[in-house]
Simulated scan of single mutants.
Amino acid sequence: MALFASSYLIGDALYWYEGLEEDVQNDWSRLRPALLARFGRSGPPPTAASSTPVISAPAPPTTIPTPAAAPPTTRPRPLVRKGRLKVLNADGSLCGYSAESGDLVDGMCRTLSTGPDGALLISFIASPSGEPFEIQILDDPPNTRATDRLAVCWGGLAQNRWQSEVTSVASSCRFSSIASSKNWDIKKKVWAISNSGELSVDYPKPDGGTEGLQPFIRQSANYLYWLRSSRSNTRGFNPVRIVVEDVV
């Protein structure tokens, strides 16, 4: 015990300890009274009540704070977009803009304009759940009697015949013009858009599914068409991308 106690001595106490006789250093019964005589308190020893600090716990709050109200859950609002349909080549260069004028069939939207002037002006609300949506055509000047839709039709093919005609192609068109004058398979709620603004077509099938269509340019006529994504033979067609160029 004497050796253990001496290991805690520092400074003047250590020098004092080193000056003691060896038998005092090694005998705790003699070292203890020597320590008390040299370093003991001059006054009476403290009582347990005075030496032990008493820490009183704070009184509990009289009121319990109410938890913060949970933030209200809000459903994402559909985004109304207005713009033009820009057609890009596979390398990202500009091919043109989807237009209406210059076609052989009234109401078809297969031709391209070289710039924004003459391009179709459209508006749409993309579905938050990713379901196909409609695209409205904004006439200039505005048509006060009717609002037309940009649709997709299978030229020369009546109801559902496009499924068996594997080489058939679809086209963008005005719904009112084609539906009123042609017996062609035509749908308007077919459009889909990616997060990057790239447009595609999900054409409905009789079994409840959809057929994915991708845009191509026919090399011989420079017309814009929609071909099945599963079509393997695209000879004579160049793949393009259609993106929405927003306008204010």
Rank of each mutant, 00 (worst) to 15 (best):
G156T: 05
V190P: 00
L224W: 02
T47M: 12
A158S: 15
I186L: 15
D246K: 09
Q219G: 00
A48L: 11
P142N: 04
L121C: 13
P132M: 03
T73S: 10
G19P: 02
V201R: 13
E100T: 07
L112Y: 03
G83T: 01
A146N: 13
T114R: 14
E165D: 15
E131W: 02
S196L: 07
R231N: 01
K205D: 02
V80I: 15
Q219R: 06
R231G: 01
N222Y: 07
E245M: 07
C109G: 00
S180I: 05
R241H: 14
S129L: 10
F133M: 06
G96A: 05
V152R: 05
L36M: 10
Y223H: 15
P206M: 00
N233A: 02
D148R: 10
R161M: 13
G107A: 06
S171D: 05
R174S: 04
E198G: 00
Q219F: 00
V248I: 09
S127Q: 09
A158P: 00
G96C: 06
G209K: 13
L157I: 10
N233D: 15
G96P: 03
L199R: 08
R30C: 03
T167L: 07
P239F: 06
A126M: 07
C109E: 00
I178L: 13
A126H: 06
G155M: 10
Y225N: 02
T147G: 01
E18K: 14
P215I: 11
P78I: 14
R235W: 07
L85D: 02
A49G: 07
V190C: 03
A179C: 12
P46M: 15
L20G: 00
A146I: 13
L9Y: 01
D27K: 07
A49M: 09
V240F: 10
A37N: 14
Q136P: 01
N160Q: 12
S6C: 14
P128Q: 12
V244L: 14
A119N: 06
D103I: 05
D106F: 08
V244A: 02
C173G: 01
P204F: 01
F4P: 03
I10F: 07
S171F: 04
I137K: 08
V244M: 10
A179Y: 08
V243M: 08
R145T: 09
C109N: 05
A158R: 14
V54A: 04
S181N: 15
A2L: 05
S200V: 08
D117N: 09
L94Q: 05
C173F: 00
P206K: 08
I137W: 01
L120S: 02
E134H: 08
D148W: 02
I242K: 04
Q136K: 15
I64H: 08
